[in-house]
Design a protein around this nucleic acid. Structure first.
Lengths: 346, 346
DNA sequence: TTGAAAGCGCTAACAC
DNA sequence: GTGTTAGCGCTTTCAA
């Protein structure tokens, strides 16, 4: 394997005794090259350790790069998504680069712009805080797949799980276990987006609806926190020490749920005192020491599907696609106040 | 914020009534522009929503991009590293892009090459499986900082923690608690690298030395596994069900340790039966439900330091730098067979 | 202080 | 099937 920062297509052409265009065709698998020439060119490429420069290619043709934007890589859900995408892309000539929005929230657009500036051939993004109008504009110039958005689109594709149904599953599960006083802890809408189509807004809506349908409408409580384990931890302590301790807590996603479990542990409580359910079915929840009941939304598959949709767009599709994944509730110890010790291995 | 895929420097120049060169100077904060012109140019940039294209800039000058290669983003240690790097870089004109080596091991060079192909201005990489000679070659053309390597270098910088000392701390800690039969589970050298300077090789060495120094040389056992929680889980089950169950297990890093804890839980055992210690002091270990004793090696700081070294190289330094971080043992429940319930909040 | 012009390495028309 | 050539958008001498 060569580093080869200085070998150019010109050098290869000279070494193989052909034109630059011929070399270009070979490295792109384009039509109009005889096997003999392809052979000679490939030999020259190997010998010189030639690597085409992405910057130069980007100026005329493609960058062969897919950009993936995620809020953070610290949440394992997004890692699974990335993993699903890279797996689906291996074997193609496309490479993935990742731009994490980073610690500051509302940085999604900035991270996406980083990818646009690099002229990636397509973008997969998870950014609930971006206005659809901005995405429509972006989608017109770059193939774009948004994960976790429920909005109708024209110039980009969307992939979501049915958040409404997912949180309904949670509430019904807890209700069946005998819980009535169920609190929903979720991220502050201002931190995610005030769009009614944002995933967490829909989960909240699903919670409220399901509670109402089960005749518990008057017991609903929604607590908003910053999107961190720590913030959720504090909020949960308040809840546990407050005048009306709930019997169950439904956290907006698994990272928040871990904060809830931390608070419970600190107060010496467990599932028989307060049941906990998360969302995303993140790796850590399946660990027997944690045993977190959660809603699976097939992160890996979503990543793979995102790539498929992008490749479709890259090869001509123009009408928007919208895929909805069905959520599945995975019951574990954290919501089993009389059940067996779960040792599900994920 | 604009998407602006089609506004070029030419458009800005025309709108501001100046030359392209002038605009170029303004966006690079270069010398030789009058305040009046800077003002006019900046107004035009805002109005048109101009974004310089990285590809075009890369062809002549800099890409203003720092590439970070990590084995995976699923291990939280690397996330902390990335976080430390991006934090240190915010406020500068540099952007970070991430290339994960991905599921296949030994893919480090491939992922690094992805960054080289994109002509990033500097590279931070965590790749124990790469030969120093290859890195020397790379370091000659791109500023390069390697994290987690102990080798002496000429053309690149290295940052490590003192792995030898770190595992010595672990062994001494366990010895003090009364443990004698301590097994070390670590990743298969073939999966990481057969270089004697690789971190895990050194941790193993530290383990062996410390055991010998404490007179337990005859009790040492090293178990090699694939670098996954699952593989470690299976190996641990074998160990627990085997003829000579150890009283303590020192795992090569926290992800492996989680596999050990999973196996213990499956067998209904806990810290009073088998003590467990990990390495990296990963987020999850600090959770009270897990309480994993581990060795902290300041991932965030390492990321920040990597950026600092890179920026130094970018502004002229040529002699190699080598920074060593001191490891710290963080005792928690998993190695406290008679201690209190730890609720350390990280 | 400002602008004109050359060219970075590659791809895509188009001519042969 | 193969080569020639004109740029892509930017930075960077070098003149003015």
């Amino acid at each position: 394997m060569q580093v080869a920062a200085s070998v150019t297509i010109e050098d290869v052409a000279r070494a193989a005794g052909v034109s630059r265009a011929a070399v270009s065709k070979v490295i792109r698998n384009a039509y109009g090259v005889s096997p003999a020439m392809r052979e000679r060119v490939q030999t020259a490429i190997e010998m010189l350790g030639y690597r085409p420069r992405v910057a130069a290619r980007s100026m005329r043709g493609a960058s062969y790069t897919i950009g993936v934007e995620v809020p953070t890589t610290a949440n394992h859900f997004f890692d699974s998504l990335i993993h699903g995408a890279t797996t689906r892309l291996s074997g193609t000539q496309y490479q993935v680069i990742i731009a994490p929005a980073g610690p500051d929230h509302d940085n999604g657009p900035r991270a996406i712009q980083v990818l646009v500036d690099r002229q990636v051939d397509g973008i997969i993004a998870v950014s609930p805080a971006v206005q659809p109008s901005w995405l429509e504009k972006l989608g017109r110039v770059t193939p774009l797949v948004m994960v976790g958005r429920h909005d109708e689109s024209i110039n980009y594709d969307t992939i979501v799980n049915d958040d409404l149904q997912g949180s309904r599953l949670v509430v019904e599960h807890l209700h069946q276990l005998g819980h009535r006083d169920i609190v929903h802890i979720t991220i502050d809408p201002r931190a995610e987006s005030n769009l009614p189509q944002a995933p967490h807004a829909l989960r909240t809506q699903g919670y409220l609806q399901a509670m109402a349908d089960l005749g518990q409408g008057s017991l609903t409580r929604v607590v908003h926190v910053a999107p961190t384990e720590l913030a959720t931890y504090s909020a949960t302590l308040d809840l546990l020490d407050g005048p009306r301790r709930p019997t169950a807590i439904f956290a907006g996603h698994d990272e928040l749920a871990m904060g809830v479990l931390r608070a419970l542990a600190d107060r010496g409580l467990d599932a028989s005192d307060v049941a906990v359910v998360g969302y995303d079915d993140t790796q850590i929840g399946s660990h027997p020491l944690v045993g977190l009941t959660s809603v699976n939304q097939s992160a890996e598959e979503m990543g793979g599907t995102a790539v498929r949709l992008l490749l479709e767009r890259l090869t001509g599709r123009t009408e928007p696609a919208h895929e909805v994944f069905p959520p599945t509730l995975i019951p574990r110890r954290s919501s089993a106040n009389c059940g067996p010790y779960s040792t599900d291995h994920h």
